[in-house]
Design a protein around this nucleic acid. Structure first.
Length: 417
RNA sequence: GCCCGGAUGGUGUAGCGGUAACAUAGGGGACUGUGGAUCCCCUGUCUCGGGUUCAAAUCCCGGUCCGGGCCCCA
């Protein structure tokens, strides 16, 4: 026997039921984005490799699916969607009226060790807000991400807010040079506080200041932040949080240890977790960033977020969310081959009226067909028999109750609705 | 890239050196006009490659894939 060709590592096939769930959640997400004035865009699955390596350093190339095409171009399957969307903006949308609100749903690719909630091909949902940096704009953005996760049905999610400008200001006050920020941020991100302190000592930061910085990272309120630093960034952070409350969110945590993985973030940053997911619990991450000048565009403020769609689905399942099922309104059953053509005409007519209808294509007996109708969850069966046809009637059977009535074919439509 | 645990019909499982089994799903029939019931029949399986053995689904080694945890995470 030939060896079966199997699905590649880290990828998934989706059964019809799973696809129905995914499309259902996608539809909800699209509607929410649109209700906030966002418009959907799509970019190619692959881009020039350079788009992703420009700002992110070289180590990450190991996680990128990169390849050369036949014209010897260096290309890459997109590992995320912010860079492609901003590339798109710089190429074609710079003159659009501001604020520009764009959203996307698309597959991304990373060569990673697969785990639950982590795949090599996965779906990211996200948006970019271009052209405004008012506190209300960022508050709305955060509120939007939170609303999406709540409205698709998640009950237990945790929003955490951080601010990179504040950390940078404090580091500057401590005498740390800008080109040293990156490696420090990396240590904060990994919660390697011992090494962080060591590094700060090496940078000749006074012991008392290092201790203070540690305490600063554990701040969980604006008031506490003010004990460490007075800077415009703190006031701005405060304003965003005030507007967030106006939008209706008052449950969140201040966490100065939030450091997004990419260098291009600045200012406000936020993450949303679903604790139920364990190790891979982060559902959403985003914030303010600066990427446009890097791609040669005229500098305007930008912020955005990305939601891990697959993880959101897993979290919903873990929480026991009941998804709707795909059902058939009507299953049309010809009693025998003589009534088959009539049955087909009936199913045609129903489909034209946007009724979800199917007809027996296996020339099965009535008993088997009814069994099939119930297994595909048809709400009603229409039985097309010769006796009734003589009177221009058919039988409509309610599959839940088992009750059936004989109706005139002309009145069929009204009986089904 | 590292550590641990797995892999048996489409799905869920039993067997743990000696005839591959059960449930369920799918197809047909009992029943040529009434479903979710019953009975019968059919289809279909040991992740792959080596090794040990008279004999391997079972033991050993390696690969692949899955799950859990690291690393990483745009």
């Amino acid at each position: 026997m030939e060896e079966k060709i199997k699905i590649p590592r880290g990828t998934r096939d989706f059964l019809p039921d799973e696809m129905f769930k995914r499309r259902y959640v996608e539809r909800t997400i699209r509607e929410i984005f649109q209700s906030f004035g966002y418009k959907e865009v799509q970019t190619p699955t692959f881009e020039h490799l350079e788009l992703f390596t420009l700002k992110s350093g070289e180590e990450i190339i190991e996680e990128i699916y990169a390849f050369k095409d036949k014209g010897n171009r260096d290309l890459a399957l997109r590992p995320e969607l912010t860079a492609p969307v901003i590339r798109f903006y710089v190429e074609k949308m710079q003159m659009e009226p501001k604020p520009l609100k764009l959203f996307y749903i698309g597959n991304c690719y990373r060569y990673d060790r697969p785990q639950r909630g982590r795949y090599r091909e996965f779906t990211q949902v996200g948006c970019e807000l271009i052209g405004t940096d008012t506190p209300e704009a960022y508050a709305e953005l955060i509120y939007l991400s939170y609303t999406i996760l709540r409205n698709i049905g998640l009950k237990n999610i945790v929003l955490r807010l951080g601010n990179l400008d504040i950390i940078y200001s404090l580091l500057e006050n401590m005498g740390v040079k800008k080109n040293q920020f990156r490696e420090l941020m990396h240590l904060i991100d990994k919660s390697k506080f011992y090494e962080l302190e060591k590094k700060l000592f090496e940078m000749r930061v006074a012991k008392s200041k290092v201790k203070m910085f540690r305490e600063f990272l554990n701040c969980n309120s604006i008031e506490k932040l003010r004990e460490f630093i007075e800077a415009p960034a703190v006031d701005r952070f405060r304003e965003i949080i005030d507007f967030l409350k106006v939008f209706g969110i008052d449950k969140f945590e201040i966490d100065m240890k939030i450091v997004r993985g990419l260098d291009y973030y600045k200012g406000i940053v936020f993450e949303i977790d679903a604790p139920i997911l364990g190790a891979e619990k982060q559902l959403c991450g985003g914030g303010e960033y600066e990427l446009i000048p890097l791609f040669g565009g005229k500098e305007v403020p930008t912020a955005g977020f990305a939601i891990g769609f697959d993880r959101a689905i897993i979290a919903l399942e873990e929480e026991g969310y009941v998804f709707p099922e795909q059902k058939l309104d009507v299953y049309v059953i010809p009693i025998n081959e003589k009534t088959l053509k009539n049955a087909i005409k009936i199913v045609n007519m129903l489909r034209e009226k946007n009724i979800i209808a199917d007809v027996d294509l296996m020339r099965r007996g009535l008993a088997k067909s009814l069994k099939y109708a119930s297994s595909v969850k048809a709400k009603k069966a229409i039985i097309v028999g010769p006796k009734e046809l003589e009177k221009e009637n058919v039988i409509v059977r309610d599959m839940d109750s088992g009750k059936q009535i004989e109706v005139k074919m002309k009145n069929l439509l009204s009986m089904i609705k």
